Simulated scan of single mutants.
Amino acid sequence: MVKIQPFEVEQWMDRYELTPGVINIAETCAASLSIDDLVGMSVNQNEPGPLILSVKLTYGAIRGSQTLRQKVASLFDRASPVLIPVENVIITQGAIMANFLLFYTLIGPGDHVICVYPTYQQLYAVPKSLGAEVSLWKLKEEHGYIPDLQDLKRLAKPNTKMIVINNPNNPTGSTIPASVLKELIAFAEPRGIIVFSDEVYSPLYHSLPSDQEAPPSILALGYEKTVATGSMSKAFALAGIRLGWIASRDPSIIEAVSAARDYTTISVSQLDDQVAAYALSEPVLPSLLKRNEGLARTNLALLSAFVERYRSVCSWVKPTAGTTALIQFRKNGVPVDDPEFVVDVLDKTKVLFMPGSACFGLGKDLKGFVRIGYVCHTEVLGNGLHELGRYIEKHLL
């Protein structure tokens, strides 16, 4: 039997997010939308909505509809001189299934995997459970949580098969700039190492410095052994349709993943496929991204003002992208016990966020840190920060 660690962040969310009266600032999706909301965003109000109700509900297109795969392929075309063929895209049940299938297909005993850290636990726990040796490429607060290529070179081994990155990063909200991505490819390509980029928070590059452009997808950098995953959940505010994707420059990777998927979910729901294709369509997508980017900027300003107000007890590296922030809290100059802190805040205020050391740290890493998802509805974030501020004034100052 394969041994795998409990998925801590999902365990914590499952345990606490349905607490009666909860003010949830732990959620990492941009504030969720309804079908009616999506239809209202379309510039073609006379056109039909996303669901074609006359279609028979068979398994549908096994790899995803041609329409949806084409729209997903176009998401990767940013700054890319060579377009991704539609055949190189597979639609999956969320990015979490996409990530699992990639590891299940490509990684096993005798392989070495390097994964950025901190990040979503799945990205290093699953390859380890499959028998691979995993080295953590630690992101440093003093470097703005941007990966250091010198550290990568020290971690690499002759049997390194895959390097895993997460851009934008969860939980820090940092962005790996194009210059670092190019250096990464320059390192991996002559060694034949697969570069896998979890891009589930792309393209929410909403708060980059004025002199920095949004980085391209890893697929835009001219190296065949690159793979990217994404979903409709985070940047596109549609977690409820459970739809994601895998795309690669390497057709052999796509074929191997497709063959493995025959043993799992076979295909995605036709209804989910139709909704995703509608959301990514030209009449809807610009309005959808404008809404989510605007929400992110507005709410990040609120969170930034909060951190500044209570800077004597909390600190951070301000996020530049995505929907999450990593903040450290201290009492009398000492980092709080973050799991106890999270539970106590929830008990006293109904405000929920995630403990860093329990959900994203190994051992004593990330002590005192919490992850806040700030791209919820602005009213929810405002209420949560108000109540958290009252708690701080009573218990930390």
Score class of each variant (00 low, 15 high):
R15V: 00
C115P: 08
T320G: 04
T19S: 12
N44P: 00
V342R: 02
R78F: 15
L289A: 02
A178S: 08
D148E: 13
I107Q: 07
D338R: 08
L155D: 03
T58I: 11
G356W: 04
R191Q: 15
Y201S: 03
A235E: 02
I372G: 06
V86H: 08
L295C: 04
S129C: 14
V336T: 02
I107P: 05
Y104C: 02
D344A: 14
R191P: 08
N167Q: 09
Q122S: 11
V126W: 11
L123H: 05
L204R: 12
Q328F: 09
I4S: 09
A186C: 04
F76V: 06
P283T: 04
D272C: 03
G64L: 08
S267Y: 00
V200F: 03
G361R: 13
E308Q: 15
Q11Y: 04
K331R: 15
K71H: 11
A259T: 11
G60I: 05
L136M: 10
A277N: 02
R309G: 09
P355R: 08
G382Y: 10
L208E: 03
N383F: 01
P48K: 10
G110W: 14
K290V: 00
A30P: 06
P20G: 04
Q11N: 11
R15W: 07
G110T: 12
I218P: 03
L53F: 14
L33Q: 03
A73T: 00
P171D: 04
N88C: 12
P118Y: 09
P177L: 07
V134A: 05
L75D: 03
F236V: 00
L57T: 12
P319I: 04
T229G: 10
P286A: 08
T28A: 14
F103E: 07
I146L: 13
L68P: 05
E47D: 10
S233C: 04
I25Q: 08
Q328W: 10
G384D: 06
P339S: 01
L149D: 05
Q274V: 05
S34Y: 04
W137A: 01
A178R: 11
K157D: 10
E224S: 06
L303S: 09
L181S: 02
L102D: 11
P85E: 11
C314M: 13
A325G: 05
V200R: 01
R390K: 15
P85F: 00
S80E: 09
L295A: 06
M162W: 05
Q93L: 15
R330L: 05
I96T: 14
A220I: 07
A259P: 00
K394F: 01
Y16H: 14
P158D: 14
G192M: 10
T160R: 07
E213L: 13
P355I: 01
D198R: 06
S267F: 03
F187K: 10
V89R: 10
Q122L: 14
